[in-house]
Structures are given as C-alpha cells and as structure tokens.
Amino acid sequence: MTGQASGRAAGDAWSSPEGAAALAAPHSAEKRRAVDLRVLLGLFLPVAIALIWEGIVSIGWAQGRLVPPPSRIVATLWGLSETGELWTHVWATLWRVAAGFAIGAAAGIVLGALSGASDTIRRLLDPTLQALRAIPSIAWVPLFILWLGIFEASKVALIAVGVFFPVYLGIAGAILSVDRKLVEVGRVFRLSRFKLARRILLPAVLPEAVIALRSGLGLGFMFVVAAEFMGASEGLGYLLVDGQQMGKPDQILAAIIAFALLGKLADSLLMLGTKPLVRWQDTVRERL
C-alpha cells in the first residue's frame, strides 16, 4: 500500500511544478502524501456503508423507519439547524460542558498539583479522593438533584465530578514521575522551591497534563449526556430523549452526529491551544 502510494507520489511529481518542488525534498513530501492517502482509507468504510444503506432503502428492500438512511439524517440535521433549534441545543450542551470542565479541571489541577508536590498532602487527600473515585459518578445524580435542584447547577456539578478525576490523577501522577535527574539539575543551580516548580516541574508535566485534560474533556461530554437525560428542556441530550419518546430515530442519529462533531472540535481546539507548550516533545506526534 505504502509502496503504491509513494510510487504515485513520484509519478505526480514530474507532471506539476509543485510536485517537482516536492521531489527536491522527497522525505517530507512522501510522508505527507502517504498520510493523506491513509485518511481517505479511513473514510472508505463509513462512506461505503452509508451509500449501501441509502441504496437499499431507496430501492425499497428495507423501510428505513428504525434505521433511517443518511439522506434523511442529513435532512433532519439541516431542518433543525434551519429553524435554529439545533443551535439552541448545541449552545446549551456546550455551555454545560464548558462550565463543568472549567470547574472540574481547575479543581483537578490544584489538588493534583498539591498531592503530587507534597507527600503530606498526598497522604491526607489521596485516600479520600481514591475512595470517592470508586463511586460511579452517575450515582451522585439523585443527591445532586436534592442538593442543587433539577436545573443547571446539578448538571454542571455532575460534569465537573466526571472531569475532575482523570485530571487529578493525571496531574498528580505526572508530578510524581518527573525525572529526579532533571530536578537535580535545578538543585545544582540552586533554584528556589518556587523557581524549581516554574522552570522544571511545570514544563516537565505539561505533556501529561494535556493528556489528562483531554481525557477529562472526553468524560465531560460523556457526563453531559447523562446530565441531560435526567431532565432537561434543551441540549443535545434532550434531543436524544425527545427522539426516543417521539419515535424519531433520525433525530437521535442527528444528535449523535452533532455530539461526535462537537467532541472532536472541542478536542482539536484543546490540542491546538496546548500545542505550543509541548512542541519540544520528541514523541509529540505519537502521543497526541
């Protein structure tokens, strides 16, 4: 496959000035083309299945009532966005995730940093937090509703709890695993505790902190669905429940696709925002 790809790359190269320039730097050009082709390969399966299903429904072999063909899902998505209904739901969901993520991530970073940096604090905090982590987060729902009401506060709290644990664990673990040898370099140059944290610990934990934040964000999207299931009048999760109760599978699938796009978008933004911080990393491409 790769051989074929590079063969074609070389073939194209002679026919266009751009390609000829690429030939001058064969290594990077070849790499770029190989990656492009592989992305197309990944699209093949979903597109093929969608087209086949579309065909089956359109010639009448299947009704497509419970599993609507792609054209109907796209039409529903389009219709929802035309009326503006989709954007209301998207904003409601995004707002909840953003608020929950901000609270959960901030708490996770602060407590994770404390617990990673000080042995005493870790002994004090960690057992309790680990015990709390063992509780499935959804189990908090009834309690949060009793405490915080059925509106936004309880939903944001649930998302914050979901985001908190991966961030806390990631940050604390990252600080604990900072190379002692690099810390010694800081000691040799007599850095104060604060400077040691700023000039060695912080940059050293950044790559793992980014990964922790990304998995936190993923969980945030997972918990926003749970939160919106438990009673909401707007949000993509509400669209899901509504679609189920009204028997509209196309609406459910439209909401699912919206979730996928939003999740990917949020993750890409987070990656883009943190990329300058970790560009020194040797393995950056494998890990992100």
């Binding site: 040898k181 690099l182 010694e184 370099v185 000691r187 040799v188 140059f189 007599r190 060695i200 940059p203 050293a204 950044l206 020194w280 990393q281 040797d282």
Partner: peptide, 20 residues
C-alpha cells in the same frame, strides 16, 4: 553542605532540559 555557586557539575548523562 548544599549546592554552591562556586561548584559546577557535569553528570554522566547530559541531563539537558528537553523543553529548552
């Protein structure tokens, strides 16, 4: 008794800070 400005050390490994 503790690291001193007048004493420098080169370790067995380079120990460079990878982000600088």
């Amino acid at each position: 008794t503790e690291p001193d400005a007048a004493i420098g050390i080169v370790f067995q490994e380079p120990r460079l800070l990878p982000w600088l």
